[in-house]
Design a protein around this nucleic acid. Structure first.
Lengths: 217, 217
DNA sequence: CCAATAATAGTAATTGCTTACTATTATCCG
DNA sequence: CGGATAATAGTAAGCAATTACTATTATTGG
């Protein structure tokens, strides 16, 4: 049983943890302060002793996510023996992060599509931006090392990298099993890495016929 | 100006259209019946002449999406001259669909992560399933035609295909410009197709590999 | 053709319920 | 004690849904 009367900082930390856990089981945008409080064995009103508004709770959560996720992928990338291997390590550590905290990608996507940019939304945006920067850097390194195709569109490659995660998460939502992410991660990554890699069929692949007609809107 | 007292079917159709439009500008899960009604120049209660519940509105919307999207990609695939070209055509028509109805991928993702499986959720799931089936079929055809690598993990390739769309949509949420999807679509697709394609470096590509050429810079 | 009538599609107001948030009171511990 | 913290018991607002009623359209029989 959790003791009552914890110091404020610890209570805030437990609040963030509760939100992360609850996001793994239900739509993050539908999590109420009452549900958070109940999960902490505390009354709903008590939360507002530690956070001025509900938005502030989400802000703290997104900050937590930022620190945790970037820490992990940075650490993973450090241990790699080449840029391409670094990408692989970043991806795999991200996958493990998602399995550990399945609510995170869901709250991210939900946060990003909110109409008005709440503080939490800005932090989420910043996280993606910083993530993309790290990816771009690694991809440029891979190019310089001759591991990646020298005509590679690094911006597109970064988008696809993030899309890999998104696609796997969506698949797990369908199967209802978050572990499915791990099952298919290798296959997806393999296709990605081959697409990024330097190889025989470099240029002409990208410029094949593209039905890009103007479409009225 | 829209006239009042429309036949029921037309009013239902207009309701679906309103939801689709509104989803392009705000978080779909936050769209209220009052907002839908306002966009139609009708009172909130009037909606319930044509739909028993709000869930029923979402159900109709998801059915609309299913028919429209599958129709489009089926039609696009028909005009292709090879399986691989079919994949390209499906992707591009999907991209145009997303640009035309930017709310659709957002409502899809939101719907899929709802805790209880509402009727609309089931339709959304079914849509993805049918979509994935079409992709798997095309990918198998590509294999048979020797266009795709014969050791390709078609399931993973289907997940990554859907992830491409998700990644591009997420990117557009960040930039606030849906047209950005079209800008980066070609680059992302190029990487994907190269990853799927049959080529010199088939099998060993999946394993880490030393840079083969000289190191530039 | 054309009133009388039925059926349908709308409005305005209100329902019960849930929500984020707050004012007040009770409790702990140095 | 006294200062910080939690619990209690609210409030006002927003939500989907319902109700009672009105306006429009469709159908029918003489």
């Amino acid at each position: 049983m959790q003791s009552k009367y914890l110091p404020a900082e610890e209570r805030r930390s437990l609040t963030v943890e509760a939100v992360v856990v609850l996001s793994g089981a239900q739509n993050p945008s539908e999590i109420t302060t009452a549900a958070i409080a109940k999960h902490m064995n505390v009354t709903q009103g008590a939360l507002f002793r530690h956070f001025p508004t509900k938005d502030a709770i989400w802000e703290a959560v997104m900050e937590w996510v930022t620190n945790r996720l970037l820490d992990r992928i940075d650490h993973a990338a450090e241990g790699a023996c080449s840029p391409m291997d670094g990408l692989r390590a970043m991806f795999m550590s991200h996958i493990e992060f998602v399995i550990e905290y399945p609510g995170v990608p869901r709250m991210m996507f939900g946060e990003l599509q909110r109409a008005e940019a709440a503080p939490a939304t800005k932090i989420a945006r910043m996280l993606i931006k910083r993530y993309a920067e790290r990816l771009a850097k690694k991809l440029e390194e891979a190019k310089a090392a001759g591991e990646a195709a020298n005509d590679l569109d690094t911006h597109a490659a970064a988008i696809l990298f993030i899309g890999m995660i998104q696609g796997l998460v969506m698949q797990s939502l369908l199967s209802g099993d978050i572990k499915a992410v791990r099952t298919h991660a290798h296959g997806v990554l393999g296709i990605y890495l081959r697409g990024v890699k330097s190889g025989a069929s470099d240029a002409e692949t990208l410029n094949a016929r593209t039905p890009r007609g103007k479409i009225r809107r």
